[in-house]
Amino acid sequence: MITEQDLQRAITTFERLREAIGGVIVGHDTIVRASLIALLCRGNVMLEGVPGLGKTLLVRTLASAVGLKFSRIQFTPDLMPADIVGTDIITEEAGHRGFSFSQGPVFANVVLADEINRATPKTQSALLEAMEERTVTVGANTYPLEEPYIVLATQNPIEMEGTYPLPEAQIDRFLLKANVEFPSVEELVQITVRNTEGSGIQFPAPVATADDILLARDVVRALPIAEGLREYIAHLVLATHPTSELATPRIRDYVEYGASPRAAIALIAGAKAHAFLEGQPNVRHADIEAVFKMALAHRLVLNFRGEAEGIASSELLDDVWNKVPVV
């Protein structure tokens, strides 16, 4: 049972967290909110944007603010799964030789998978278990990961040479996918000031603990949502399927597979987290709208025609959003 004190504590925690991140990151409200939502929902976030926009800085700032263990994996074509999850090594202790498990970088609370699409699918798949089950299996042993756990992956949408697009199964495991937009003039000026004057970028001191994060997660899960909105979300997800009666003509034309049930879960969880971050005692229609594209865009699988014509999933989702009525 969430008490008033728990609620206030969770609210306070995340207000401080947002302030701490805002002290380092200029702008990027969308991806900051997406990262916090994923943190609150026990999810993972895919950040997509060109290099130099501050994706890595954001993740490091978030890890620093929450005072959690942070690790960064730079994905390259020759990266092996063992390089990520760890491996058994031979150790000698008290005259006895044996194998002991050496944890890889995936054993952290905040994992930055930088340029994840540069690694081979085999290596990419090494993250699947960690992202979804929060465990790592090496050989016959399975090792749990420490909560709170969040993977923030980045990928460059422009550079396609030598990249391996993520399989649908792995993409579906990202709660949200946020596009990192180029900063505005004012934001860019502010970025240059912070990086070229004074002592430069100073990562924030921890303003929250792991317990605070876990408590906030419980608070978010308890946030009420009207039954009508649940049905509405179900209709939204179904409307992304080309065979659905709710599907728009463009969905039928350009989509091969619609969003999975995991998308509906992500939408409700994300809406709850968004409402919590907005200080609301319940989920609103506006909360659903705020996370709708982030939760569903990367889950639509376009068909050949859609790919050939360069159709953006966000455009198709606009159609769905405009067509499906709330009541």
Partner: peptide, 27 residues
């Protein structure tokens, strides 16, 4: 009303004594 009526109805239907119910009724 930011879907507060319907959310409160859900909480009352479940006989929930959640802290959010008080906030909703108060609002």
């Amino acid at each position: 009303l930011d879907e507060r009526l319907s959310s409160l109805y859900e909480l009352r239907l479940r006989a929930s004594r959640s802290v959010f119910r008080k906030h909703l009724e108060a609002s």
